[in-house]
Amino acid sequence: MRRLPPIGHIIFILAVLLTGFLIENTYYFQLLVFVGIHTLLALGLNMLMGYAGQISLGHAAFYGIGAYTTAILTATYGFSPWAALPCAVLLASAVAYVVGLPTLKLSGYYLGMGTLGFGMIGFIVFREWSSLTGGSSGFVGIPPLEIGPVSFYSGRSYFFLVWTVVLGIIILCRRLIDSRTGRALRSIHDSEKASRAIGVDTMALKLRVFVFSAAVAALAGFLYAHFVTFISPGTFDFLASVRMVTMVVIGGMASVWGALLGAFLLTLLPEWLHAFSEFEMVVYGLILMGVMIVLPRGLFRGLLDVFEGAREQTAKRSGGVNGR
């Protein structure tokens, strides 16, 4: 068990390297960059939802805070993006701390409502503070990223940048999950009262995870802003928050690889469904419902179960009794 994560990471690195060098077309790189950014969002939210058992319907606001902070600092005030990055992440974390303090006292749907309200307020601020954010028409002229002579302009270089970050966050998440904190988190997920009874400071823990997931979302926002070089409030609205939650649940909660799968599916699905033109929404809705009905534990666990089931059957057929 303990030796396992490195293997996963090696496979992951190989897969990224392979795709990175096999694919030629810029379009696929751009698509995969978006997948990577969405994976980051799903990873952060997954920590909150899958491990701490808290829902957030307002995470797009943190995504937006990351994007707008770096946009304003770099384009308006001429900061270097690398100086803007810590500011963006810190600001999002600070906001998450302040908002989380009262909001995380709520539970269940009330927590959903509280975070939703926060997300809406964030969206309204992005839209209405037009002297700073450019308002509804959006913010133009965000500079692309550069490290010394290397400019992350082409699809491939940005692809590697984003997926390196994704790998970093995956490792961070796994570390967190396997730590003492992670165990305490899972105990909150199972029963908050019980974990409080055995001495876990549930509030502080929940807050810490909330701040962590907000910071990851802000990082994703940073990457988004410098990739597209344009942002507008529409990208960070309520539906964006819902999409993030959907990615986590569809992929499979409480699983790092599930978040990856969910982000993959929900980003690529609309691209495949273009063929349906008018029926795109209908098919998309049906697939969403279908996945949840057939695999209520998400794609990752679900596929695992199917795989296991098939293995057991072959084991039985080949005469292997008492397999377990």
């Binding site: 396992l4 996963g8 990856l260 296991e308």
Partner: peptide, 27 residues
Amino acid sequence: RQSLPRKAMWITILTLTGCLIGTSLFA
């Protein structure tokens, strides 16, 4: 039990590869 998460990894990788192939078919 030990091999279970490893299989999971393979499933993920296979699915993702499938996704990529699926996308490139349209290409």
